[in-house]
Write a protein that binds this DNA or RNA. Sequence first.
DNA 1: ACAGTAATTGTAAATTATACAAAAAGCTTT
DNA 2: AAAGCTTTTTGTATAATTTACAATTACTGT
Lengths: 243, 243
Amino acid sequence: MKTYQPRLLQDDLYSIPIDEFFKSAFSVDCVIFGYHECELKILLIQRGTEPYENYWALPGDLVYPNEDLDTAASRILNDLTTLTNIPIKQVKTFGKVDRHPLGRVITIAYLALVEPADLAPHASSWASQTQWHSMNDIPQLAFDHREILDVSLEELKTRILQEDIWHRVLPEKFTLTQFQEVFETILGKAFDKGNFRKKVVKYKFLRKLAEAQTNVSHRPSLLYTFDANRFQEMKANGFSFDF
Amino acid sequence: MKTYQPRLLQDDLYSIPIDEFFKSAFSVDCVIFGYHECELKILLIQRGTEPYENYWALPGDLVYPNEDLDTAASRILNDLTTLTNIPIKQVKTFGKVDRHPLGRVITIAYLALVEPADLAPHASSWASQTQWHSMNDIPQLAFDHREILDVSLEELKTRILQEDIWHRVLPEKFTLTQFQEVFETILGKAFDKGNFRKKVVKYKFLRKLAEAQTNVSHRPSLLYTFDANRFQEMKANGFSFDF
DNA sequence: ACAGTAATTGTAAATTATACAAAAAGCTTT
DNA sequence: AAAGCTTTTTGTATAATTTACAATTACTGT
């Protein structure tokens, strides 16, 4: 039988039949955060089968033998939300030996931030249900999903400063207050309104429109749009918010 | 035969025997950067077997069935350098379907920064040789290792600002100029000496000693040590250099 | 018209960054 | 021993940015 000779070791102590190495699987777990009106949520499914039956869990699936990892992540997100073209990016791989009761399964976590209102209401024609949970009230989770969620939240805090993922959770035309609220909610801290506004306006990728809010019982706010091109240019030069 | 029913799909189109999923393997590739006197290097091995025989490659190995990912990374680093207790952290997982000619193998990249002089000279009792290469002169690499290296270099630039990995490439007692050179080399840009010094001194985790350099043909520099406790405290509060 | 509310603009003080220049402390050369 | 060379170390004047507020504005509802 052909054996796998570890390339880095000098003796034969650890010779293991190569087949033993090709008995693993990997899954992708999607950490799908939702933001709506100052609340951060997380999309969870309730498992319909063992192991961890009835537990809440991050939506995930095994990766098909001929499927790229990134493709698998997009597929799962799409199956679950019907959303397409959502940027979804790798966070980290979790690979403890005993993390999965059924065998050696490592999982690659992916992260996305979406607007919950964009989701097609998902009739659960299969056993497990899908539900948004507030980040302030997370049930016990299956596997090591709590750890994955914690790590991903930290990653979200980093990404929101570097990428334009906040764009997806705001309407096409938005106020600077709405913009500020996204950052306050996700980063978990408040900013001085006047100073925050001056800081972001000077970057020039938020473009002031001629329109204003209507039907608000106070001074109406001017509306802004996002100039994605300008942002990409700045990102290419290493731009990042320093909140 | 038992089949794996993808949890997220509503029909049976994709039912695949579950065995098909457990035919993958994963490897760990170590991106070991070395810094010495204003030069950044990378540790490569020359492969002694197919595929990619004779190509230079990042040192890596398949992960044993009962081995944690982090453990595998430390093992490989230790086999190669005899170094222990080096912090080595995950960068990213690379999982294109066709990245490995022998089957479905995804690889998890890990990163470390070490002082080349610390390495026990490694008699190559096995076919492939191990060698430091300047980052300015990288040969063609096996698999997708060039991409892995590029991503890891970017990650190194981020980590050097947030973690104390620079500590390992400096002697116990070092000058502020040496300290500055590490950052200049890795980030690839120069800083004003006076201003750089003032900025880092005010953080208080570099402690001035009563000693100075000797036998230098110019004003001798005062020596500093690193106060790791103070740094950890600051890191816990979100500290990061803003060079 | 007036009160209530949040948006927007303004500003003074404090802090930090930047670009240099000057002084200091060794060795080396004359 | 003095003068020169080199790099460290400290200083400084200016510009730029941050911060904490205050003042003003523009709507709705009474």
